[in-house]
């Protein structure tokens, strides 16, 4: 579904590359978490995938095709929800459909209502984003991402602005969404616990520049519960991961 082939990228004006000859792949239907300390370049990887940045060398393939410019290859959900305050919930969610064009108002409304009831916010369709709680806003942003129609979803620390309890329930909610649709999800986080809970495989950033991602499978069946993730096996992986991240990034 997603493949990096010897990708090198350097921001103009920087001393060295931030991504250096990086290769990895993510298979169809996987839920992968990209873990690493803040500022290590995780978001840069996303920007290379969604076409906002172009690699200096190598290529990024989505669904077997190289990414050319921004637009349409994946559903990208930025760190902050970026809901437009002047649009209602429904109008925000249908934004990708409007941009794509070619659908009637009725078709768009149908798709919006479907995805809003999937995320449990159909009753809120005509509210403004500022009337919603943080968790609800993230669900709206997620619904908007789903309506890009893309099979690859890139979620950039979507829950980092939520409080702890909200974050826990949003994780469970997100897994339930994923299990229903089985889209390919790449999820950025700096929270190892979150990564282990969500993903079938963790990709850990090793050092700077990013030249290698350690791939760590998480041997736990879905659906997952918070208690289930307290098993000794998982805890051992967690400790190993933390040790590795600290050694690589100090």
């Amino acid at each position: 579904m997603l493949q990096f082939r010897d990708v090198t990228f350097q921001y103009p004006g920087e001393a060295g590359p931030i991504v250096d000859k990086l290769s990895f792949r993510v298979e169809q239907g996987e839920f992968v978490c990209l873990v690493g300390p803040s500022g290590c370049g995780k978001s840069t990887l996303f920007r290379l995938i969604n076409g906002l940045l172009t690699p200096d060398k190598g290529e990024v393939l989505v669904g077997g095709r190289p990414v050319k410019g921004a637009g349409g290859c994946c559903g990208y959900m930025p760190q902050r929800d970026m809901l437009m305050p002047w649009r209602t919930v429904a109008e925000n969610v249908r934004l990708p459909l409007e941009v794509q064009g070619g659908r009637s108002e009725k078709e768009m409304d149908g798709l919006v209502d479907k995805v809003l009831s999937d995320v449990g916010l159909k009753a809120w369709r005509n509210h403004r984003p500022d009337q919603l709680s943080g968790g609800m806003r993230q669900r709206v942003a997620f619904a908007r991402t789903v309506l890009t129609g893309s099979d690859l979803l890139l979620l950039d620390e979507p829950f980092s602005s939520l409080d702890y309890l909200n974050r826990l329930s949003m994780r469970e909610w997100l897994l339930a969404q994923w299990e229903r649709e089985r889209k390919t999800v790449v999820f950025i986080t700096h929270d190892v616990e979150e990564a282990l809970f969500l993903s079938s495989r963790v990709l850990a950033v090793r050092g700077r520049p990013i030249s290698r991602l350690a791939s760590i499978p998480v041997p736990a069946p879905y659906p997952r519960t918070i208690v289930g993730m307290q098993r000794r096996e998982i805890m051992a992986i967690k400790e190993g991961l933390i040790t590795m991240l600290r050694r690589d990034n100090l």
Binding site: G71, M82, V99
Partner: peptide, 22 residues
């Protein structure tokens, strides 16, 4: 917000759409 414009780019929006909608 630059991020809002970038998000529109990832939706495949053109300049006119970004101008009118954002």
């Amino acid at each position: 917000r630059v991020e809002m414009v970038e998000l529109m780019h990832t939706f495949g929006a053109n300049r006119r759409q970004i101008f009118c909608k954002v």
